[in-house]
Amino acid sequence: MLVALGAAVGAPLRFLLDRAVQRWAGTAFPWGTLVVNVLGSAVLGFLVAWPAGEGLMALAGTGLCGALSTYSTLGYETLRLAEDGARPAAVGNAVLSVAAGLGAAAAGAALAHA
């Protein structure tokens, strides 16, 4: 139940945040997906390093962060950029997403340790 409850918050949050960021950015580059993935990575990094208990990890780690972040959309949008002839943007999206996600997870963990 905790996973489902967290996902019920994370999924609409992902949708709304993605749309808001994309509207603000006004470009074809998938900034919204990048933002939600980086945010999810930071929160999960924090929770793992804290360490959160089993219930909080189910609610916020698996449920919220799992529904907030989206690897499948990252893959789809990167492929779409490449198919549309924006290969440098596609490569940049993949590299930036992985690097920023790892950095955000490390920053979240560092914050938890502080």
Rank of each mutant, 00 (worst) to 15 (best):
L2Y: 15
L2D: 14
V3A: 15
L5S: 09
A7H: 11
A8N: 10
A8D: 05
A11W: 13
F15N: 10
L16R: 12
L16C: 12
L17G: 03
A20I: 06
A20W: 02
Q22A: 00
R23T: 15
R23V: 09
W24N: 01
W24Y: 13
A25Y: 02
A25M: 11
G26M: 01
G26I: 00
T27M: 00
V35E: 08
V36K: 02
N37V: 00
V38E: 02
S41R: 08
V43P: 08
V43M: 12
L47D: 07
L47H: 07
L47S: 11
L47R: 09
P51L: 05
A52E: 05
E54V: 11
G55C: 04
G55T: 03
A58L: 13
C65P: 05
C65K: 08
C65A: 07
A67N: 05
L74P: 03
L74G: 01
L74C: 03
E77W: 00
T78R: 05
L81R: 10
L81G: 13
L81I: 06
P88Y: 01
P88I: 05
V91M: 02
N93Y: 06
V95A: 14
L96C: 10
S97M: 03
S97K: 02
A99N: 03
A99S: 11
A99R: 06
L102E: 05
A104E: 01
A104M: 01
A105K: 11
A106M: 14
L111E: 09
L111S: 09
L111F: 11
H113K: 15
H113I: 08
A114V: 15
